[in-house]
Design a binder for these strands. Structure first.
Length: 342
DNA sequence: AAGTGTGACAACCGCCCGTTG
DNA sequence: CCAACGGGCGGTTGTCACACT
């Protein structure tokens, strides 16, 4: 289709001069941008409206954060990209003051190379074939990875609080049991309302960190006194820098089976892991879950949960969970409620 | 000092989608 | 219902500064 404004002969292209910037800023500060297509004429610029919009959004907007990306921002980008892919605009929403263009450029010029250097496919975040070979013979390869400090074994979101009370452990136990019962019945209609975690605000501070560094199963943790001890250690989880904590709010229940993700890639967990984490019916359920999740994403997209202005990052939260396949069976009721209560 | 390579960033292009008449 | 339009987005290209030979 194209744009009329862009096909006009008289529009100037290339870098913007300070004078042009000033004219655009003055106009927008005075009148707002209104219709972008009318901006060039009103502001006296020989540019197409699209160019004006881009210049404003990517460079002139007053709320832009300039300068290099922080480590925190870098981690956020990687984490969100792993979930959303090249959805730069969506990723940028998690980085106040950053534009999609900025994030995209940073990814292409920096992060991409880092991931490749670490043997990870920047598109899938899976191990590259060559690295996978190495991985099978030397697990330490991945442990040294700064972005993915541990092997991508199945892991769950679990607390990283420096002190985890027995109560928290009990809550974890209770919810894990609830999830176990739910997962054994891949039919959302069978979910016991008591297990839907609706009122479990207590958990909001508990399930707030995803620790790649400790790839235990929650079951293992709950069955292990060592877990309790470890979590009570001030250094628990500290091998992952605190800066890697999510800055975005995560849902109360972020128990995620990464097998669903890694199962679709090249990585193959060890046999015991497969048995432990992914029973055949669960694997099937996971696949179906992803399928349904995609439908939910479409529905959610239409709902527009005022993403940008809200602290409740449901869009992202759901996206975080969906690819892993558990959302549909385990989280849907809760997320529905959160969505409407939020 | 000149030529070349590289990285970072700005800007453009083309497509998609929602809105409007 | 449909075409035109405008805005948004992701991919790509262009430009510039700097390092290296």
């Amino acid at each position: 289709m194209g744009h009329k404004c862009c096909s006009k002969q008289k529009v100037k292209r290339g870098l913007w001069s300070p004078e042009e910037d000033e004219m655009l800023i003055n106009h927008i500060n005075t009148y707002g941008h209104g219709s972008w297509s009318s901006i060039p004429k009103l502001a006296g610029l020989q540019r197409c409206g699209k160019s004006c919009r881009l210049r404003w959004i990517n460079y002139l907007r007053p709320d832009l954060k300039r300068g290099s990306f922080s480590e925190q921002e870098e981690r956020t980008i990687i984490e969100v990209h792993r979930i959303l892919g090249n959805k730069w605009a969506q990723i940028a929403k998690h980085l106040p003051g950053r534009t999609d263009n900025e994030v995209k450029n940073f990814w292409n010029s920096c992060i991409k190379k880092k991931l490749i250097a670490q043997g990870l496919d920047p598109n899938t975040h899976n191990l590259l074939p060559s690295s996978k070979t190495n991985h099978s013979t030397n697990n330490n390869n991945i442990s040294e990875c700064s972005f993915y400090p541990t092997l991508p074994k199945p892991s769950y979101f679990f607390p990283v609080n420096s002190h985890v009370s027995d109560t928290s452990i009990d809550i974890l136990k209770a919810h894990f049991q609830a999830l176990s019962s739910i997962s054994s019945s891949p039919d959302t209609n069978h979910i016991n309302p008591d297990h839907s975690l609706h009122g479990s605000s207590t958990l909001s501070s508990v399930y707030e960190y995803r620790n790649h560094n400790t790839a235990w199963t929650l079951q293992e943790k709950l069955n292990s006194n060592a877990f309790v001890e470890a979590m009570n250690q001030p250094s628990a989880g500290a091998s992952v820098p605190t800066s890697s904590c999510h800055s975005y709010p995560l849902s109360e229940l972020e128990i995620v089976n990464e097998n669903c993700k890694w199962g679709t890639g090249n990585f193959e967990p060890s046999k015991p892991d497969q048995e432990m984490f992914m029973q055949p019916q669960e694997e099937k359920a996971c696949e179906v879950g992803i399928e349904k999740a995609n439908m939910l994403i479409d529905e959610q997209t239409n709902m527009d949960a005022s993403f940008g202005s809200s602290n409740s990052d449901f869009d992202f939260v759901e996206s975080t969970q969906l690819p892993y396949g558990l959302y549909n069976y385990h989280l849907s009721p809760m997320m529905d409620q959160l969505q409407w209560n939020g």
